[in-house]
Design a protein around this nucleic acid. Structure first.
Lengths: 103, 103
DNA sequence: TTGATAGTTCGACATATTTCGAATTATAGG
DNA sequence: CCTATAATTCGAAATATGTCGAACTATCAA
C-alpha cells in the first residue's frame, strides 16, 4: 500500500491536513511570509495564532484545532512565547513535498 | 482565503483526494510507472482499474469510487478502452504541485 | 443472443470531520 | 492577587467520508 513518510509523518496525513480550505489558507499564509530561498522560522517569518486566523472568520477554538492538525501532521512548528503562540514552517518539509511530486 | 488552483481544480480538493491512504496508494502506482522525465499516459504507463486495485483489498465499488475522486480532482485521467478503463497521470499536474511546495 | 469479464451506480451504515460556544489554562501587567 | 488577553480543551451537533453488497451497464467472444 506504499507508506511514504516525511519526517516520520505518513504522506496521507500531510495531505489530509492540507485538504481543508481553512487549514490550507493558514498554511499558505506561512508559506507566503517565508522569504524564498531562506530559512523559515526566523523572527520576522513567524505568525502568532491570532494573526494567522485574521479574516478567516472562524471561532478561536476552530482556529486552534486546525493549527493543531497542521502541527500534528508535521507541517508547521508551534512554540509559546509569552501570551502568544508562534507558528512557522519547517522548510525541509516543503522541500520533500516538492520532491514527491517531481516528475 | 487564498484560492490556488491547478487546471481549474482548487488545491484543497487535490489534497483531499490524496488524503486517503487507498487513494494515495493508487496515485503512487501511477506515479511509479511513469518514467521520470518522460510524458505519462503512454501505452506502457497506463493501468486499468482492476490492475490498479490489486492487493489493495477493497471492493470493486470502493475502488471505482476512489478512482473517480482522483479523476474529479484532476489528478488522473481515465478512458474506456474495450472492456477496460485505463488510468494515467497528467504530468503537468505533478509539475504544478511540485512547484507549489518549492521553497 | 447469451455468457463472462470489467466497471459503475445506488443505498445503507459506521465512522470521521468541521464547527461552535462555554469553560479552562497560561501569561503579563497593574 | 486580580484582570485582561491569548489560546486550548471539551462536548455537542451537523455534515462528510469510506466502505460494502446488490443491482446495473458496457464490451467482447462464442
Amino acid at each position: 500500500m506504499s507508506n511514504y513518510q516525511i519526517n516520520n509523518t505518513p504522506l496521507d496525513e500531510m495531505f489530509k491536513a492540507l485538504s481543508n480550505p481553512h487549514r490550507l489558507a493558514l498554511f499558505n499564509r506561512l508559506m507566503n511570509c517565508c522569504t524564498p530561498g531562506t530559512k523559515c522560522g526566523v523572527e520576522a517569518e513567524r505568525f502568532c495564532v491570532g494573526e494567522l486566523g485574521e479574516g478567516l472568520d472562524i471561532a478561536p477554538s476552530t482556529l486552534s484545532h486546525h493549527l493543531k492538525e497542521l502541527n500534528r501532521a508535521g507541517l508547521i512548528q508551534m512554540e509559546r512565547r509569552g501570551k502568544h503562540v508562534e507558528c512557522w514552517l519547517d522548510p525541509s518539509v516543503l522541500t520533500e513535498l516538492s520532491a514527491f511530486f517531481k516528475v
